[in-house]
Design a protein around this nucleic acid. Sequence first.
DNA 1: ACTTTGACTAGAA
DNA 2: TTTCTAGCCAAAG
Length: 98
Amino acid sequence: MASVTEEQVELARELIQSVPPGEVTTYGDVAAHAGLSSPRLTAWILRTDGHDLPWWRVIAASGRPSARPPERQLDRLAAEGVPVVDGRVVLKECRHRF
DNA sequence: ACTTTGACTAGAA
DNA sequence: TTTCTAGCCAAAG
């Protein structure tokens, strides 16, 4: 598959929506479970077709928030119960496993 | 058809 | 610990 199919996008959306409050997932995880070729595609989906998804629950594997207004994002995550330490999300504890 | 860009990642410095 | 580099894939100009 040379491009991202509807199926992949749909699955990625499902996965992201299935992440409960208090937990987060990474681009790589979503990509892996959705069958995407690369984590960048997850980012591409969130940027283009994922405007309806809880993009704030999808963070980089480094534990850093996405490159969008990160301050509000961290506050929102913390409010949902996501462990945030020193401006960094604790993936080790809140990473959702599908 | 080619080049640039991007909400990434893992590894190196 | 943080910052940089290279690899990565698809879309947009």
